[in-house]
């Protein structure tokens, strides 16, 4: 005979709470995390006057500016010394510059075997015509992973500071609609209608063609984000939320970062243990070439586009 648990007992268990959270019925953080609007810091008039009085008192009574000869001398000397110090600093900095080697000299320390290796065997090893893309996304993929993490953490911090819960958002948007600010400009809307598809397609082109031409994840993502911002500016936040809301944002951002991490991990394990990696480099110049560069470019592009749009939306209305 199996024992059946009481419903009240079951509701106390962790698994019930977990599954309720998974199914989206209740978010355990609502009500426990502070999500309030920041109020402007205000200084009272009394403290300002008190501070001004104290400043004047120090000038008049402690230093006695009008009758203090040493102090006036010091002030004159101070100006001369400041000018002399700046001149001396400029002189020493220029002196240091004159010791630097000439640009483009073959014997310079920056002309070493690292740059030579990138230029000579970069195309063969990474399959990317664009050496810069091949460099930052394969040889230095770990560094770029750190940069992508910086973008992620930056948006998280801005969210912590500026995100407002839905109720306040609705109230605020109603208040903003009633105030007589510019909205629904027909000229801007028509322009955005024509331009946004071109901007988005160009952004996708720059991301996908990152290994063959100048561009890549960062610049393509910036173009995508700019297109999204233009659309949101022209038509308001409601039509934008039909295809880019908080859910899409969350999925795109986290999955792009995890995907990048997985690709990088795979590549490092293979490379460190001298194993053959199974991502073909392809024919240089084709869209599907460059090994891990294309997927990493897509991840970075998504991340940058989400970051740009999230910054805009958070600063504008406090929510995505």
């Amino acid at each position: 005979m199996s024992k059946l648990k009481q419903t009240q007992d079951y509701e106390k268990t962790a698994s019930f709470k977990f599954f309720r959270w998974i199914s989206g019925e209740k978010d355990p953080y609502i009500g426990t995390i502070e999500m309030q609007e920041q109020s402007e810091h205000q200084v009272e008039d009394d403290t300002i006057t008190e501070r001004m009085w104290e400043k004047q008192m120090i000038i008049d009574e402690i230093y006695d500016v009008d009758h203090n000869r040493i102090l006036t001398k010091f002030h004159k000397l101070y100006k001369i010394a400041a000018v002399l110090f700046c001149v001396a600093l400029t002189f020493f900095l220029l002196l240091t510059v004159s010791y630097l080697p000439r640009t483009g000299n073959a014997a310079n320390p920056d002309n070493n075997e690292v740059a030579q290796r990138y230029i000579e065997s970069g195309l063969q090893e990474t399959g990317a015509v664009n050496i810069v893309s091949g460099m930052i996304l394969t040889y230095r993929a770990f560094d770029t992973f750190g940069e992508t993490n910086v973008l992620f953490i930056a948006t998280v911090c801005v969210m912590i500071l500026l995100m407002v819960d839905e109720k306040t958002l609705e109230e605020r948007s109603e208040a903003r609609l009633n105030s007589g600010r510019i909205k629904d400009d027909i000229i801007l809307q028509m322009t955005a209608k024509f331009l946004v598809p071109f901007i988005l397609i160009f952004g996708i082109y720059v991301i996908l063609n990152g290994q063959n031409s100048p561009g890549g994840g960062f610049s393509g993502g910036a173009i995508l984000g700019a297109g999204l911002i233009l659309y949101a500016n022209a038509f308001g936040i409601k039509p934008t939320q039909r295809f880019f809301n908080e859910k899409v944002y969350r999925i795109a951002k986290v999955s792009a970062l995890c995907m990048y991490g997985c690709i990088g991990l795979y590549y490092y394990t293979m490379g460190a243990n001298h194993l053959a990696d199974h991502i073909p480099n392809g024919i240089p110049g084709h869209i599907l070439s460059g090994g891990i560069i294309l997927p990493i470019d897509i991840c970075v592009g998504l991340e940058v586009a989400c970051t740009m749009y999230a910054f805009y939306a958070l600063f504008k209305r406090g929510g995505l």
Binding site: D185, I187, L188, T191, F194
Partner: peptide
């Protein structure tokens, strides 16, 4: 020519 008049209009 497309975008700059729009921005100055705004």
């Amino acid at each position: 020519w497309w975008s700059s008049p729009v921005s100055s209009h705004l």
